[in-house]
Amino acid sequence: MYEELSVLICDDSSLLRMQFKKTLQSIGCTNVYEAVNGEEAVEKYVKYKPDIVFMDIVMPVKTGLDALKEIIEYDSSAKVIMASSVGTSGNLKQALKNGALDFIQKPWSQSNIELVLSKLI
C-alpha cells in the first residue's frame, strides 16, 4: 500500500529518525529521505519532492515552523505533518497557519503514523 510513497523525515534527533524510518519500512515504505534541521528539510524537499513530510518543530539552524512556511511557499500542495513533543496551543495554531495538514504528538506509535498516512493517501 505504501510501497510507492516517498517520505521526508525532518528531526534533529538521530534516534527519532532511526525509529521513524524503521516504522515506515515495517509498513512497506522504503523510499525515505532524512533531514537533520529545518534548512536541510527545505533543501531536500526541493531536491526530492517527497509525497509526505514529517517535520519536528524544535530544530537547530531553522525551526520546523519556518521550514514548513518555506516549503509551502515553494509548493502550496506540499503535504507536511508536524511531529513534535511541544504540542502547545501556540505551536498547533502556528503550524496550521503555516500550512501543516496534521500534528502528531511525540512519542508517536506505529498506529499514529498509519492513521495519518491513511488520511492523506
Partner: peptide, 17 residues
C-alpha cells in the same frame, strides 16, 4: 546523543504543554 537529547526534549515538551 540522539537518545539522551530526545529524552530531555520530550520531557521539556510535556513541561511546555
Amino acid at each position: 546523543e540522539g537518545s539522551i537529547g530526545e529524552f530531555l526534549n520530550l520531557h521539556n515538551g510535556i513541561f511546555l504543554i
